[in-house]
């Protein structure tokens, strides 16, 4: 059985990042790479040995981005991009958050966005008392067709009910503003 001897290569190499909100330190110092991986087996090894997102302290994030892209909008490969954002209310963390995050990761590493997979930079889950957030980051917010197709695919893969609308925000609109005031460029 070849599955038992050969690791299955991924199209991309990915880095998993952890952010812990320590106000005594600079924002960038709170952001660390946990590890990088480029095979299916190494992904599962990592996933199975890290704390589920729902068990992280409030203020923490996990991010999984293509190797070479930092999980911040200032990165050259994110700057012109944006994110599809799924807001969860407090009661959704226990039943849904870990499943949603895993499904997002499977779409990323499996190149689940078909011909638009090159538009993907990564994904982030933010654990927050007021409500967790899951974001799928793309590299160019001006690519309307790609952005919309990615949103549709994300919503479908995560089994988001049709009546729930998810929005896409350009990082250039988000930078320096409170979340509630940012307009959606697209919704699906």
């Amino acid at each position: 059985d070849p599955d038992s001897v050969i690791k299955h290569p991924l199209q991309n190499s990915w880095a998993m990042w952890f952010f812990k909100n320590d106000k005594t330190r600079d924002w960038k110092d709170n952001l660390r790479v946990i590890t990088t991986f480029d095979t299916v087996e190494d992904f599962w090894g990592l996933y199975n040995h890290t704390l589920p997102a729902s068990k992280l302290q409030s203020g923490c994030d996990y991010s999984v981005f293509k190797a070479g892209i930092q999980p911040m909008w200032e990165d050259a490969q994110n700057k012109k991009g944006g994110r599809w954002l799924i807001n969860l209310n407090k009661s959704q963390r226990q039943p849904h958050l870990d499943d949603l995050w895993l499904e997002t990761l499977l779409c990323l590493i499996g190149e689940g966005f078909d011909e638009y997979s090159d538009d993907i930079c990564g994904a982030t889950v933010n654990i927050r008392t007021k409500g967790d957030k899951l974001g799928l980051w793309t590299r160019d917010a001006s690519r309307n067709d790609a952005t919309r197709k990615i949103g549709i695919k994300l919503k479908e893969s995560l089994n988001v009910p049709p009546k729930i609308v998810i929005g896409f925000q350009a990082h250039s609109d988000t930078a320096g503003k409170a979340g509630s005031t940012v307009k959606n460029r697209f919704t699906v």
């Binding site: 199975n48 499977l106 590493i109 499996g110 190149e111 997979s117």
Partner: peptide, 18 residues
């Protein structure tokens, strides 16, 4: 070149392989 693609079921199957 060809893109290396895995669907959900294949990734889940490989989760449980030795």
């Amino acid at each position: 070149g060809t893109r290396i693609v895995y669907d959900r079921s294949r990734l889940m199957q490989l989760r449980n392989s030795p």
